[in-house]
Design a protein around this nucleic acid. Structure first.
Length: 353
DNA sequence: AACGCGGGGCA
DNA sequence: TGCCCAGCGTT
């Protein structure tokens, strides 16, 4: 199909048939567009929707976000995943607030320099807020273009990224970049879906290479295979005097910047029981004044790249061992002010600590 | 250029 | 269970 025909058919579809409403659509405030785009990175619209509304309500301007405390913002981000987005959100809000006098950069080259903003987000902000001619390339765009034009280059290869970026730029409606970008993403999300796309009602069907060749379900093509790790996390809820031991994760690992309890990680399963816990405590902390309160059922969580299995073990110290004195002891009532990973929250929700 | 990073929804 | 989602930073 001619590239110009693709563009005009897509724009016609958008004007006539697309009724996908979202809180940030038609928004012109670059702060709100930026916030929505960060939230939506690798995240479904439905999943990010409420987070967006809570952020805008609590922080209506970038200056207010910039002034917020880290822990408060992470608490609001809790459960959304990819927590580096939240860290970079704060870095960029504070940078713009302090160094740019609160004014969001208004051109692509400056926007893409901001932390947490890559080619996709820079194109999205440039086109939606400033109607600049930059084409977004996200999962939807890879899928639509690979199918319509029958491109089999792997989208997770460097070559593929270049090729699709070039094509995306060629089919962009440069005078209506914002509208076009909305159109192709909505089209990918509602018609040209990953699984069971609506080819029978697709306005591009007659011109779609993948449909003609029967390759719809083979495109887009990926070459990398996901490797999954299995880890065992045993969390000890060390309690003493209405306080509990918490720790902010600070390694380059999952859940960085989130809180957790005292973690004992193992590469294989451990069959804990009261006696084993007691022995382990004696060995680890060389004290006998710890009482094993309870050992939870085995819980599991499936992440994209890892499977976490583990248990929660409550321990009551009559006296805090010296080796734990430099850890952070938090009043239990304040637990709900901290952001925890889902794995921990699924335990806390049904358990009164 | 390759790899690691969450959580949810769907077939 | 496996795949994908309005991707990005690090090494």
């Amino acid at each position: 199909m001619l590239k110009s025909k693709f563009t005009s058919l897509l724009m016609q579809w958008h004007k006539k048939s697309n009724r996908r409403e979202m809180p940030w659509k038609g928004e012109k405030d670059p702060y709100k567009i930026w916030l929505s785009e960060i939230i939506l990175q690798q995240t479904r619209v439905e999943q990010g929707w409420n987070y967006y509304e809570r952020f805008i309500k609590k922080y209506p301007t970038i200056q207010q976000l910039a002034k917020a405390k880290d822990e408060e913002v992470f608490k609001l981000w809790e459960g959304l995943g990819y927590y580096n987005r939240c860290k970079n959100l704060l870095i960029t809000a504070r940078f713009i607030s302090k160094e740019l006098n609160g004014k969001f950069p208004n051109n692509y080259d400056k926007i893409i320099l901001l932390k947490g903003i890559g080619p996709y987000t820079a194109a999205a902000i440039s086109s939606f807020a400033f109607n600049l001619p930059y084409a977004v390339v996200d999962g939807n765009v890879f899928r639509v273009l690979s199918r319509v034009f029958g491109i089999e280059t792997a989208i997770d290869s460097n070559e593929g990224k270049k090729e699709f970026t070039k094509l995306a730029d060629e089919v962009l409606d440069k005078k209506n970049a914002g509208e076009y970008n909305q159109a192709i993403m909505d089209f990918g999300a509602t018609i040209c879906k990953p699984v069971s796309p609506s080819c029978s009602s697709c306005v591009l069907q007659k011109n779609c290479n993948a449909f003609k060749e029967g390759k719809v379900n083979l495109l887009p093509f990926k070459e990398k295979v996901l490797q999954k790790k299995h880890r065992w996390f045993y969390y000890f809820l060390m309690q003493h005097d209405n306080k509990i031991l918490v720790h902010k994760r600070n390694q380059k690992d999952i859940w960085e910047n989130l809180f957790e309890f005292y973690l004992f990680e193992s590469s294989e399963q451990i069959k804990w029981n009261n006696q084993l816990v007691q022995e382990w405590l004696n060995e680890q902390f060389a004290i006998k004044s710890a009482e094993v309160v309870s050992v939870s059922a085995i819980l599991a969580q499936q992440l994209t790249h890892q499977k976490i299995t583990g248990q929660f073990i409550k321990v009551n110290f009559k006296k805090v061992p010296t080796s734990l004195q430099h850890y952070k002891w938090l009043v239990i009532k304040k637990l709900n002010g901290l952001a925890f990973p889902k794995f921990i929250n699924q335990f806390l929700e049904k358990e009164i600590v």
